[in-house]
């Protein structure tokens, strides 16, 4: 399992691995938003938390179809399925690798982009906390979507259509934490719910993803 994680990380960092693509996309979204809504700092400060959450979510979406599609094309998925690794663990590790190469860098980059969007000082801690808690859920749910669409040629668009509605609860609670934190309100409610969603999907969805992969491999 460690070998698989290391391999996936290595592949992501090598040329053509797509690491950094999500980050660049996140940066571009943050830069484009002021062009769209106008440069007033007050308005930007008000929407910064929500925009950053949305940007992170879309950046996450960008790299989802790489989770299984590449291994499917070159036959490694067949070989992994016949290896001693349980397929459930493969799904878990793949989601973890996706989070380490996408969710984690996005979380770390968010404060810098918060600066660009004049996010109020009170918001930084909660923005980072909510992203750190929420992005694992995005990766795991996305991994399920990727498993569903792995056998479909050019399934990228379909993947987005399937995964985005599933992202709704995570987005709502995550952005709510960031927004309430920014406004100095109590955040414990949505924070607990966000953590609950993350833990629940991490516990359950890898098993469902493995089931779906087995159906696709038949």
């Amino acid at each position: 399992m460690k070998a698989l994680l290391l391999r996936d990380l290595k592949l992501a960092f090598r040329s053509g691995g797509g690491f950094g693509l999500g980050l660049a996309f996140f940066l571009i979204v943050a830069v484009l938003v002021p062009f769209g809504v106008g440069p007033e700092n007050d308005l930007l400060a008000k929407i910064a938390a929500g925009v950053l959450w949305l940007g992170a979510l879309l950046a996450c979406l960008l790299s989802l179809d790489r989770i299984f599609a590449l291994d499917w094309e070159d036959g490694s998925l067949d070989l992994l399925a016949t290896s001693p690794l349980p397929l459930e663990a493969v799904c878990g590790v793949k989601a973890l690798a996706h989070w380490l190469t996408t969710g984690l860098p996005l979380t770390l980059a968010a404060p810098v982009l918060g600066l660009l969007l004049s996010l109020p000082e009170t918001g930084y801690v909660w923005l980072v906390t909510s992203l750190a808690l929420g992005t694992p859920a995005l990766s795991v749910i996305g991994c399920f979507g990727a498993a569903l669409t792995v056998g479909i040629k050019r399934g990228g668009l379909l993947l987005s259509l399937l995964v985005l509605p599933l992202y709704v609860p995570t987005l709502i609670f995550g952005a709510e934490v960031a927004r309430r934190g920014t406004e100095g309100l109590a955040v414990s409610g949505p924070l607990a719910l966000l953590a609950g969603i993350s833990l629940a999907v991490i516990a359950v969805l890898p098993f469902v993803s493995a089931l779906v992969l087995r159906i696709n491999l038949r």
Binding site: L148, P165, V168, I172, E176, V208, I215
Partner: peptide
């Protein structure tokens, strides 16, 4: 098979969304 799984998972998330939207 795949749509059946999606329907089951989707149902759970639809209920979650309903709750989340009320909250939001």
């Amino acid at each position: 098979d795949l749509t059946a799984v999606l329907c089951l998972v989707g149902s759970v998330f639809a209920v979650l969304s309903r709750y989340a939207v009320n909250f939001w």
